[in-house]
Design a binder for these strands. Structure first.
Lengths: 198, 198
DNA sequence: CCTTTTCTGTAGTGCTCGCTACAGAAAGAT
DNA sequence: ATCTTTCTGTAGCGAGCACTACAGAAAAGG
């Protein structure tokens, strides 16, 4: 019994996500967001609350779309080693493409934050820790299945692969191409212990 | 024949550097800088030009002090392998300490930049590329001396170690301690080829 | 038709941003 | 002491920030 929204909420969220991905949370202004979304500020605030909540929703949308390949890779591969290898390889491909902004939004969108955006910084920090824990879980599977030497430092391996992925994100934003990222990914697999031990 | 400056320029620059290191270029306001430096805006502008030039000078100061350990490690170690190993180890120690902000200023201070700070972003990007080239140079030394198999992809190795260092910087800012970073560093050395070949 | 409800666009709010005009203070030259 | 020059502090510039008051427009119910 009332006027209905004249824009596509999902499409607007998608455009907001791309803007945040490109320049990060604080550096993306409401003016830039409304321009990218094709709407005016009151429509944005009515549909999404405020800038912080729009960002949180954009991050959730990111994890369900562009960032979902990591969760898929970890879930679908039979062994921890294959899961890690696939995450690295697909990260190389995803980070270096020109179909969307470079690198990973969770890694790069809230690095330079003032005190007033500390909560946003903390949100992405938590997601990075969750991602590292997800890597460790699959590596632990290999350890439990005897595919890794007893006593293997799985937490250290998870931190190592998380670091490699974070570095790949940085370098993709610095202009590195798919081939260069793939070479990083391949070299990183040399650190994965062989079943028999060192 | 005129009034002289009442504050220590080097000390003020040092405090500006620490502020930029903590929150990054754009997120550090002139108000925050003047508070940290113990001076008022006109003194800042008279002594350093503007915010961008102050940042550039802070980066130079950083490279000569806090960031100099990488250049030293690369210059002083006899082999490329030892140089890389030392850079990784000292990065772990430097990034995780509480004596100054976490991580590397060159890696983390200009990630989320609006269009008006694109030049600053590009400045640090160039420094990261130079650092990667410096790594490659030492690895090339090992190749030339026969300490690496012929045909070794030294550019790939340099990109890999640059990525690991960038990831260590990110994780130190996420709260990782010295021990965790050292484990990342140790694992990364597994990718360094042995002289005989694979 | 008219009413009700919600969305939309214009036009602004107060605030902080980087930066500076201006006047007074300090130090060396004469 | 006086002049000249440069620094310092106050106070405020225009511009952009996140956000919103308000009025008109649009859709459904009566």
């Amino acid at each position: 019994m009332a006027r209905q929204r004249a824009f596509d909420r999902d499409a607007a969220l998608e455009h907001a996500l791309l803007a945040f991905w490109r320049h990060g949370y604080e550096a993306t202004s409401i003016a830039e967001l409304t321009a990218a979304m094709g709407i005016r500020p009151p429509s944005l605030y009515a549909a999404f609350g405020d800038k912080r909540r729009l960002f949180e929703e954009a991050v959730t949308h990111y994890q369900r779309t562009y960032g979902a390949f990591t969760t898929r890779a970890l879930a679908e591969e039979p062994t921890g080693r294959q899961a890690i290898e696939r995450v690295l390889r697909e990260s190389a491909d995803e980070y270096a493409t020109d179909e969307h902004p470079r690198g990973c939004l969770v890694i790069s969108a809230a690095v330079n934050c003032g005190p007033e955006s500390a909560e946003v910084e903390e949100l992405l920090r938590d997601l990075r820790k969750q991602a590292k824990a997800a890597l460790k879980k699959r590596i632990d599977d290999d350890l439990a299945a005897g595919r890794l030497p007893a006593g293997t430092d799985t937490a250290g391996l998870a931190a190592f692969y998380a670091a490699v992925i974070q570095g790949m994100s940085t370098q993709s934003r610095d202009g590195a191409g798919r081939a260069e990222l793939r070479r990083i990914a391949a070299l990183a697999m040399a650190a994965y212990p062989s079943p028999g031990g060192a």
